[in-house]
Design a binder for these strands. Structure first.
Lengths: 198, 198, 198, 198
DNA sequence: CATGAATGAGTTTTCATTCAT
DNA sequence: AATGAATGAAAACTCATTCAT
């Protein structure tokens, strides 16, 4: 017996959107545990009751926000891959890095919040692992399609992803005054290019 | 007027220790928001009331757990640096990496939990930034003492730290079946060595 | 101004029926407080809104279910009385008992649920009292028509009804393994026959 | 992990008592579903929070009230049995009936409310069945100890109990103006005496 | 210092009822 | 008449913090 509405009509879809957006914002601002359903409803401009018309419970909202986030981040990255026609690392790597930075700029706060639930919610943990798997797989496939040597491909791709991720985090939060982030950026590019060309 | 006792006597210090240890464990197991003060008191073998004799509030416990964690992680790393007498990267980097992996094995769960609070608690955020600053500074200083070229030293050190951190995370959680983590480890070593020798 | 529709048209009457039937079932299954109006509407195949077109509120549905129940139980009993042509207790009493058992088998669950509301709803309480009054009166009248001595007739009839009721309850729920319910049935018959013939 | 306090100290026991008493009253007055935990706390003169210090949840309170009720009713009945020295039905039956009426006078309201939960809560149902079993067994045993013929003893005892119960209910609620309850009482006595002596 | 019972504001969630369409 | 989304008051329950002992 499914209790949660599967909104078909435009109005309903829009309202579900509003709730997800409100939650997305609030989770970004004050975290999951710092947000209550009343705030979500208020921010979304709906009543507390209707929230439970669209979502089973608060965690269900979290899962939807998570999906949203995964999409937001994955789409632009995949777009980059899709536009690759030939393997010129000197060109490709910086492009991916820029894209990743953009994605981080938009989503870094929610990323932190969602990732923070990883130790405490298995579904969230799994979602992050799956996301990494997907990106790694897609990237590795692209590379081998274009004739990259498969020696340790998965490991190289995955490691590159990690390096990019942690760099983006640094770059976006910009917390260390003694770091020249643009210089760091070239270091990161060189590392990754080196990984695949040597 | 300071309300929170500064325990001088051995018995008091020991009790404060017990509370911190209990919290450390519980936070690791079920997270900060999944732990309540009654559980902490029970695990520590003290009354709920006395917890507030040693700590201003729950967050104050968090801060102490954070300090504890910072020490646990920083000490062995610093110890490695202290034992360095000459700059042989081929030797030094793997040693540091092993040390970092060990530190992660012991502290990965609490690390995740504490780090998860950075988006929501400025003091926690600052503590993590400071920790990174300290490690970076100490490492960079050591390197320049031993005659490393200072060209982009901070950036290289910081980046290395990031790479090591994210690798350790991967290594410890071991979530991706298609990854040969030992091969990845050599990749990481080579990257870092390359960073400082080319 | 009466808000609740008095449905005149066939379709409307049928819809009201469906709602009552759905409620009857649900109340039987999970009780009055365990049933919500959304479930009723769903089971009846109507919208939640229209329920309030036919009923003032949830209690109003309860009252209608109660009426339904009263009819379901009273009709067969009265039918038995109507078929009585001469007073042969040895024949009549077992027949009534069988009829009562049948009525209980069909309605015991809803009976319990509705009766359970007597301490909390005066109208429900009154309905049960009225039902007993009606049955007692009808029965007593029948008996005096056929020349029964009127000495304590009401009391004897009422008591018989009580005995039958509690026995039927036992018989239907069959909760006590050490009881031979068929033997008990003969005891009950004898008691009642004795009541009127000695 | 037991969360609910097992009060050892006088003060605590007394407070648990107060909560049970308040619930007993409120359940009697407005039913289980008509009572909320705030009312219970208020009536008991405690905070809402502490209620959950003594009881797992609202149903746990119900179970305690049920135990209380079972005791209240069972004790005086058992007391009667214990004082029986020889089997003089003409004497014994009226005495038991009087005792049962007294018990009903004190507990009829809560009896109705608790019994009303029978269709909806298996533990409550079981408690009532067990209570009947206990009384039946105790009574039957007493009778056979004193040389009563065992032919259909359980059935006779159980049936007597039912008759007494339903009569007491009638007697206490006194809902039917056309009934002479005292005359009815003699009928009941005669029925039961007849059951065991013929 | 220490206890653990007590507080009560705050949280998630439900549901009878209303209302725009 | 009919729909079903929307409302919001109220419910059960939690927990950081206080306080009488």
């Amino acid at each position: 017996m499914e209790k949660v509405r599967q909104p078909k009509q435009a109005r309903s879809i829009e309202k579900k959107r509003k709730i997800i957006d409100a939650s997305y914002q609030l989770f970004s601002e004050v975290g999951y545990f710092g947000t209550n359903t009343a705030q979500i409803a208020k921010r979304a401009g709906v009543s507390t009751g209707i929230v439970y018309g669209y979502f089973r419970d608060k965690r269900d909202i979290l899962i939807c926000v998570l999906d949203e986030y995964i999409n937001n981040v994955a789409s632009p990255i995949f777009a980059v891959f899709d536009n690759v026609t030939q393997l010129n690392y000197e060109e490709l790597v910086p492009k991916i890095l820029e894209e990743a930075i953009e994605a981080h700029k938009k989503n870094s706060k929610i990323h932190e919040v969602l990732h923070s639930l990883t130790p405490v919610d298995d579904l969230v943990r799994k979602a992050f692992i799956d996301q990494e798997d997907m990106i790694t797989e897609k990237f590795a496939q692209k590379l081998s399609e274009h004739g990259a040597k498969t020696q340790g491909l998965n490991e190289k791709v995955h490691l590159s992803m990690n390096v990019i991720q942690s760099f983006c985090h640094e770059y976006v939060f910009d917390s260390h005054s003694y770091i020249d982030y643009d210089y760091m950026k070239t270091l990161v590019c060189n590392i990754i290019i080196g990984l695949f060309t040597k």
